[in-house]
Design a protein around this nucleic acid. Sequence first.
DNA 1: TATACCAGTATACTTTAGTATAGTAGTTAC
DNA 2: GTAACTACTATACTAAAGTATACTGGTATA
Lengths: 125, 125
Amino acid sequence: MACDATVLAEVKMCSSNYVMAVNDTMNVISGKWKLPIIGSLLYGKKRFKELERDIAKITPRMLSKELKDLEMNSIVKRTVHNTIPVTVEYELTDSGRRFKNVLDVMVEWGLEHRQDVMSEITGGK
Amino acid sequence: MACDATVLAEVKMCSSNYVMAVNDTMNVISGKWKLPIIGSLLYGKKRFKELERDIAKITPRMLSKELKDLEMNSIVKRTVHNTIPVTVEYELTDSGRRFKNVLDVMVEWGLEHRQDVMSEITGGK
DNA sequence: TATACCAGTATACTTTAGTATAGTAGTTAC
DNA sequence: GTAACTACTATACTAAAGTATACTGGTATA
């Protein structure tokens, strides 16, 4: 089979490709604020100021920068409306919405892991 | 229902808890080298030098630091063997092995996302 | 005319993450 | 005795990420 993965099942057998694909995903969501932003946008379209209010302690500089990153990576779509004054709406792309699958298993693993660590400490067999 | 999540399904309904659990997961795997280390250990126990050889360009300083982090977070178990000279083995804990579920969906999403972006560029409908 | 909202940008700074390079203590092989 | 292996640690540095603070240009409201 070697390492010429073309099918998902095969990729998963191949260490280097596996790590590469995961790193791809990691790069897209790297940084302190990308997940909060995606999390917020999962609940629907938002405007810049709405996101700023939604996400505690984020500065407009970081919000602007992270939104640009997410837009470049086709996770978020930016739409400017010809209203007065202009309003700008951010929403998830298909890929962005599909990322919820990743978040779901992250939540699951996170919770299970916490339980694991807790039961180790309390000695609960 | 408010925000007093006790069941997974309920947590997923609650934005702030959702984000918190995901951040937990992110913190555990943050950094440039944790995923390569976990990826390598998914293929079985490894000694320090084996990991160092396995993971291209990692320095012993970073490997040591990241292994300590992973150990503290109960992702990796460190065992010292009374051989001469001493050998030290690193292996994944149950939690660590269960993390493969997360990696799997990351690989899946990463590949799908790449296809998405590609088909956008080439204009394939 | 002053204040406030929107969607950001600019500049300077601090903090964190990662790298480079060398060295430790113990053991074995030549 | 010197070179090499194991499992690291120490020191000093660079680079990347994030923060703080202020400001822009346009519009609307009191």
